[in-house]
Design a protein around this nucleic acid. Structure first.
Length: 593
DNA sequence: GCCGTTTTCGGCCCGACTGTTTTCAGTCG
């Protein structure tokens, strides 16, 4: 039996918490399970050892009942208590909880009174107006639920970049290990760094495609093979992600890679350019077409059959077309071809350019790791500085810090800084922007921080004008260094709140406030479509992981690709600066008042 | 279900917002 790990235990405890809520149990009981889940997840010790030595209840939040259950789970791999709880509800009930406006209480009512056990049943009940007739529900709730169901359908079949790229990399690695594979790469929208994808496209070159295909469809983790051909196969993973692999000859590889990377709009524009030069570009090659060439004024008149213009790489394809190389992230036909022609494609920021980062949480608010652990992991990653930013007091749900706790954390940080020289910690706070744009802490507290992230965490439904005014007012506070997750969106889960980004960018330019590129894969906020404009207005970007644990530093890579997609260069991103430079930059921002 | 105790019970995290209600429950952050 494989050992069950901490995160699996935590996940199971969280599920028990949900089931208890659905049962209508004491809310503090379910909260106790959640607390225990967080405690297990974030404790440094080895779980199996703690169980073996019967020291579980030395952990705060774990008493005798949870000690017994966790011990049973870890030693036997099973927990009948959980299995019985789960068996008392239909599996579709968890989907219902995902709908906005539905919590455990209402789901319980729907389940008990209308026998609604999944999304489809809920939709039918709403359409029959059986839901509105229930006590505590009404016409508006019914309409909102239908809207939520609709939105969910719209999201179905789409995947977040952050949920896909690790799988994609391991698949490409697997392909490269195969003796018959010459070259392999991710293609499609993932390679372009799109924040949301419909499927995953892979490409390989080989002289023996059938062998590569056979190996591909047999890779672990594949749930179903939907297509298994000589040059193209499609498989389905457990999370519903479809993955296509195409295999071509190595000669065709660069053309195919360019073609399957897209975007369609970019490809169309590039093909038109080829035509203008008497050439033809497709997934199979770049050809010189004598018939086309003849029509071009002043062109030499070659004769005979179309001939392949041999390109070993994508770079050579662009070069033959008289263009600078266009990185995949820019291939959206949003001006990249014109820029490549003019030679003005910038050197885009790379994730190895990042020297440090900001906006990281600790156990002081809702993070999973201590200050020390967060610092150690960041140092190990090679970061020279780390900005801490736990929640401010209004974020009760996230255990936001009071003034006193914040200042205590500052002392802790000062002590850590004094004791080590491998990394420098900056004191900071993720300060809530309250209803009218007032910040959650007075200026003297903000002034005591090395930097401040200002974020909206409540009142999402305000009209655009009000929200914009609110955020602008916060940004006008000279102690605010950067704006956190500018639109509050959660990809494939929650739409952004209404806000006028044009005005926010203008305000950032005027006040020198940085705008965060929140690299959390659910957020990737501000959206890449706005960054080029922001950059041109002189607005500084800062790529932050919004880390709630040491594993979240990996988001920085995702965030950097989104920054690239927004045409950002190293100099546009504040945290590419060295420690000395960033220290000066923070000071410079403060001095603007 | 945990915790702490002036210890074996009683408190446990707060407040805005929404939609349902005429005073509040549920959801969300």
């Amino acid at each position: 039996m494989p050992a069950i790990d901490k995160s699996q235990v935590a996940e199971l405890l969280d599920e028990i918490a949900i089931l208890l809520e659905l049962k209508g149990e004491n809310v503090f009981k379910s909260r106790a399970y959640r607390t225990a889940a967080r405690a297990i997840e974030s404790m440094p010790e080895d779980l199996a050892r703690l169980v073996a030595e019967d020291r579980l209840d030395s952990i705060a939040g774990i008493g005798s009942a949870l000690r017994q259950k966790i011990t049973e789970l870890v030693t036997t791999g099973r927990l009948p208590y959980h299995e019985e709880l789960r068996a008392s509800f239909p599996p579709g009930i968890f989907d219902l909880l995902q709908l906005p406006g539905l919590g455990p209480k209402k789901v319980k009512i729907l389940h008990d009174q209308l026998q609604v056990s999944d999304i489809d049943a809920l939709e039918a009940a709403c359409q029959d107006h059986r839901v509105a007739a229930l006590a505590g529900f009404g016409a508006k709730t019914e309409a909102n639920l239908l809207l939520g169901i609709d939105q969910r359908r719209h999201y179905r079949g789409q995947h977040r970049y952050g949920d896909v790229y690790a799988l994609a990399e391991s698949l490409v690695d697997d392909l490269r290990q195969h003796p018959d594979v010459i070259r392999a790469s991710v293609a499609g929208s993932l390679r372009r760094g799109k924040e949301v994808l419909k499927d995953l496209d892979l490409l390989a070159s080989s002289a023996n495609p059938a062998a590569v295909m056979d190996a591909f469809v047999a890779l672990p983790g594949i749930e179903r093979v939907t297509n298994h051909g000589e040059t193209k196969s499609s498989v389905l993973f457990g999370n519903g992600l479809q993955c296509d692999l195409r295999v071509v000859s190595d000669t065709e590889f660069p053309y195919a890679l360019h073609h399957f990377t897209g975007s369609k709009e970019h490809n169309v524009a590039l093909r038109q350019r080829a035509i203008g030069q008497g050439k033809r570009l497709s997934e199979w090659g770049l050809f010189l077409e004598p018939e086309r060439a003849k029509k071009i004024e002043g062109a030499e008149l070659p004769s005979g059959e179309p001939t392949l213009i041999v390109c070993r790489t994508e770079e050579e394809i662009f070069a033959d077309l008289g263009l600078q190389y266009v990185p995949p992230e820019l291939r959206e036909n949003l001006g990249e071809i014109e820029a490549a022609e003019a030679g003005t494609i910038p050197r885009l920021v790379e994730w190895t350019d990042l020297k440090g980062t900001f906006h990281c949480h600790t156990v002081a608010s809702d993070g999973r790791h201590t200050l020390q652990e967060m610092a150690d992991a960041a140092a190990e990653l090679g970061l020279a500085y780390l900005g801490i930013a736990d929640h401010s007091k209004s974020s009760f749900q996230a255990n936001g810090l009071s003034e006193e706790r914040l200042l205590a954390q500052h002392r802790e940080i000062a002590a850590l800084n004094a004791s080590r020289d491998d990394i420098r910690l900056f004191t900071g706070v993720e300060c809530d922007i309250l209803k009218d744009g007032v910040l959650d802490f007075p200026d003297e507290i903000l002034a005591a921080c090395d930097y401040v992230v200002a974020s909206v965490h409540a009142g999402f439904t305000a009209p655009e004008e009000e929200m914009t005014r609110r955020v602008i007012r916060a940004m006008e506070n000279p102690y605010v260094t950067m704006l956190g997750h500018a639109t509050g969106r959660l990809l494939l889960r929650r739409e952004p709140y209404a806000i006028n980004l044009e005005k926010i960018i203008d305000c950032a330019a005027e006040t020198g406030t940085w705008i965060e590129l929140n690299a959390n894969p659910y957020r990737l906020d501000m959206d890449w479509r706005w960054w080029r404009k922001a950059r041109d207005r002189g607005v500084r970007c800062v790529i932050n992981p919004d880390a709630h644990g040491i594993d979240d530093y990996g988001y920085l890579r995702v965030g950097t690709q989104i920054a690239r997609k927004g045409w950002l260069r190293r100099e546009d991103v504040a945290n590419t600066r060295t420690l000395a430079e960033i220290t000066a930059l923070l000071q410079e921002k403060r001095n603007r008042r």
